[in-house]
Design a protein around this nucleic acid. Structure first.
Lengths: 339, 339
DNA sequence: CTGTTAGCGCCTTCAA
DNA sequence: TTGAAGGCGCTAACAG
């Protein structure tokens, strides 16, 4: 299969490569006729410019990278949808990398990404126990624009798109308190995540302002082992029958908490009330009492991509002041066909 | 920020670019000492080869593309997980493109992809009404290796990774029949999909072999509008009170069917029994009666990526005979902590 | 309006 | 074992 490149087109048309190139870019300095001729042949031969040659020459790749912990997670899926929509609209390609919450993997990935492969990066950091962000700093120094979303690395002076996590945590907890709960478990994901801290602080503050003592033993650190989490919660519920409420700061923990209650035969919401983060429409179907907090995941993706691409196009650096905080939707009931 | 490239390294080391290049590739024809020197400096300056220059020169990109309808869908999320795992392990990058079930969009995307941007392509075709695969044929002729997964374009002589859809459809329907159902709705996604046809044929055959007449009016073609689907099903259930079973060939239709029953106050499984494809663990939590068929999505992704990358690496063409059919898991109950 | 030329950064003959 | 040179395909000066 002989390659269809500018040289071939030029030969067939008795033109120079440069003219063909210009014609295909609708340059003003090419006669309308030759433009037509060139484009006609290009279409006929199904010419497609070599992206790598072009990237090499112009030093831009029209490609962004998305680095996230998992894709098998409704929040990130929806975010990718938003990212892809914006990228596509602006002619950008999207490379995807999954860290699986692994710090070393994340470091590996960011390492590769310093090679000019991407013009910019959208990132949600892995929930590693370590506080070591040296790989991110290296990446940041190297070149590409970075915008964080949801899970932020606060040590880099760049923009981020997040949700009102503190407030959500506060309201979720307050909701439980107002519903009569006095012994509220906080289910959070292990690791050192900005969002985890914020939600935790909201939980803490809500307890305090309602005169309920913070009980450290009611805080559960989940892992990425769902069954393990369910066991953890089941055991806690068994040992502490006074528990009457749970605030799950991650979707899968909300589901685990639901399963734990089922396993023990404790009724929801009669015995235990649950409020959980969930970006999955179905979760609220599980039980009308499983109150949910939904993040605007798609919009987060769109917003983050928009900020990033704007900066790339205009060659502006990205400043922390461009950060955006969106609001989660609290306590919606998923409408059924009959509402 | 001055770029760290071979030239720079060569200058600093008083070596030629060629030697530096060879040293970094562990070429046999470079002395151990200079290799050390080169690598040391490269590490110190955090040298990262320019991927585009390399791709241009070697005419391989170490990049594969994944073209799927949606990412916000457990099946595809899981598949991507599998794909990414294999790709990463073999040093490949993954570009992602979403068609949103739109034929024109799919054509656009495949058009871009003929430019040598990817060495290969994993694809699950959009559920368009049209039978027009000319864009795929063009792509196929152009160069990159293609492996289809789940949703196949049967007109291209390449490999695919699918599941036993006919059998699943048959067994699902048989399950309902054996449970006493006589008026079984088939909920399928609109469009011209290989998997839809296979599952439909299974449904059809099961009815036939159990002496139940096929009733065309019990086949519902859903769209990608979930609420619309729920309404559609609700209306059907209202008009045809004799309906006692539903087979949903897509996850979201399973959920819609559940919601429709709820809306009408029809008990599951007492009044209506449902069997549905679902790759989402939670779905079976909805109701123990919502029996599920689960595809090995992660393995499908792994398998498809493995076939593709093997072909790329060995520069073998991909043959239809390399196709793989994996088995879905039928009727599992998601185990709870207490099982 | 069109052609010539000079690279982008890298790899790979060929020659020393 | 190393260096010099050419070129992957494309773009962007600079000439004409």
């Amino acid at each position: 299969m002989n390659p269809v490149n500018l040289k071939l087109l030029a030969q067939k048309l008795n033109l120079s490569i440069a003219t063909v190139s210009r014609a295909l870019q609708d340059s003003h300095e090419v006669s309308t006729q030759t433009k037509e001729r060139v484009k006609a042949l290009a279409a006929e031969l199904n010419y497609q410019p070599n992206a790598y040659a072009s990237s090499l020459r112009r030093n831009v790749s029209k490609t962004i990278g998305v680095v996230i912990p998992e894709v098998n997670n409704h929040f990130f899926s929806l975010a990718i949808n938003g990212i892809e929509a914006v990228a596509r609209q602006q002619g950008y390609h999207v490379l995807i990398y999954l860290t699986h919450e692994d710090h070393d993997r994340e470091a590996d990935i960011t390492q590769y990404l310093t090679g000019g492969r991407v013009d910019g990066l959208l990132m949600s950091v892995a929930a590693s126990a370590s506080q070591d962000f040296s790989h991110l700093k290296k990446l940041y120094d190297s070149k590409p624009a970075i915008v964080f979303f949801d899970r932020v690395c606060e040590e880099l002076p760049t923009a981020s798109v997040t949700t009102n996590d503190y407030e959500s945590g506060y309201l979720a907890t307050q909701h439980l308190i107002e519903a009569g709960c006095r012994h509220i478990v906080h289910l959070m994901i292990a690791g050192n995540l900005s969002i985890g801290r914020m939600r935790m602080q909201g939980y803490h503050a809500a307890l305090e302002s309602h005169g309920i003592a913070f009980d450290e033993t009611l805080v559960v650190n989940g892992s990425d082992d769902d069954d393990g989490n369910t066991h953890l919660i089941t055991d806690l519920l068994r040992q502490r029958p006074e528990i009457d409420g749970m605030f799950a700061s991650v979707e899968r923990l909300a589901i685990s908490s639901y399963q734990a209650c089922q396993a023990l035969g404790r009724a929801i919401p009669a015995d235990v009330k649950i409020v959980g983060f969930s970006n999955l429409g179905v979760a609220s179907l599980l039980n009308p009492a499983l109150t949910t907090i939904t993040q605007p995941a798609y919009e987060i993706g769109r917003e983050a991509a928009t900020i990033l691409l704007r900066a790339i196009e205009k060659k502006h650096p990205i400043l922390p002041s461009q950060s955006v905080v969106l609001n989660s939707t609290l306590f919606p009931r998923r409408s059924t066909a009959r509402d």
